[in-house]
């Protein structure tokens, strides 16, 4: 339960309320994680939060996080400046099925901050380009200024066999892209359901709709993965907060195959 000391090396603003922090270890800590895993980040005297690792899994000297400010602890996190220290525990949890997806097409579906835990998958697929088929990224945000990683999205879109589709809920006058929920992007995807593994992260309601829509389009429930979110105080299955039916989301998840959790998703207030 003891965080290791890490130091903020870079802070960059992604959107008005979302920042990316790059941390490096003090006292000989090490990076290294599997895409989809998270850390518990501790802010001195404030609290500790589960935050997904959003950087490149091949990078072992640092850990990268993208944090959206929604309350006191996340606000304290994004207010750290270069040189300041943060406590890190982890990495924790079961990640995305990047190994099982080898040889297949990969569909990444993200809503809002949900792109952060999926970015390591994108890095991994692009780093091991020959191991995977097509990569399709379907990403929705509230408004154009809420889109994360805009430069990278454009770069990824220029790569061979990569399709990037974005949409926003509210466009505004200057937006020339698509408007609508993320599922409205599916008719533009060039994918064969039978050879596709889908990885989905976003608000629960969005994930439910996406899962329903993708299975209707012929994707097998076992080839579809969702990353779940619940209150977490410890990250290691002791505090009990993240229980969701029989699962501890921190250690059994946060990534689950849809085939395993589909009935739970329909249980209100579970």
């Amino acid at each position: 339960m003891m965080p290791g000391p890490w130091q903020v090396r870079r802070v960059s603003k992604e959107t008005p309320d979302t920042f990316t922090l790059v941390l490096e270890p003090l006292n000989g800590g090490r990076g290294g994680f599997r895409p989809g895993q998270f850390s518990m980040l501790w802010v001195f005297g404030v609290g500790e939060l589960p935050i997904s690792i959003s950087g490149d899994p091949a990078e072992e000297k640092s850990l990268t996080y993208t944090v959206r400010s929604v309350g006191p602890a996340t606000q304290a996190l994004i207010s750290r400046s270069v040189g300041q220290e943060l406590g890190v525990r982890g990495p924790f949890g079961a990640g995305w099925p990047v190994d099982q997806a080898r040889g297949r097409d990969v569909l990444v579906v993200a809503g809002g901050i949900g792109l952060a835990p999926l970015r390591p998958v994108i890095y991994h697929v692009l780093d091991h380009r020959k191991d995977y088929g097509r990569l399709v990224i379907a990403y929705g945000a509230r408004s154009p200024r809420d889109l994360l990683y805009r430069k990278e999205l454009a770069q990824w879109a220029r790569q061979k066999d990569v399709q990037v589709l974005t949409t926003v809920d509210y466009g505004g006058v200057s937006w020339r892209g698509r408007v609508g929920v993320v599922t409205s992007l599916f008719r533009f995807m060039r994918l064969q359901p039978a050879r596709t593994t889908a990885m989905v992260c976003g608000p629960e309601i969005m994930m439910r709709l996406v899962a329903r829509e993708l299975t209707t389009r012929g994707l097998a429930a076992g080839d579809l993965y969702l990353s779940m979110e619940r209150n977490m105080k410890c990250g290691v299955g002791f505090c009990g907060h993240c229980q969701w039916g029989p699962h501890f989301i921190c250690k059994d998840g946060p990534v689950f195959p849809y085939s395993r959790i589909a009935p739970l998703l329909d249980r209100y207030e579970l």
């Binding site: 005297g45 609290g47 500790e48 009990g240």
Partner: peptide, 26 residues
């Protein structure tokens, strides 16, 4: 029952902090 929550305390100058675990209830 094993559920717990965490509480953080710090002194006014912010030079000393404590982290406590206490029983919580679902």
């Amino acid at each position: 029952c094993f559920c717990t929550t965490m509480e953080d305390f710090s002194d006014v100058e912010g030079s000393r902090a404590e982290r406590w675990r206490r029983w919580d209830s679902c």
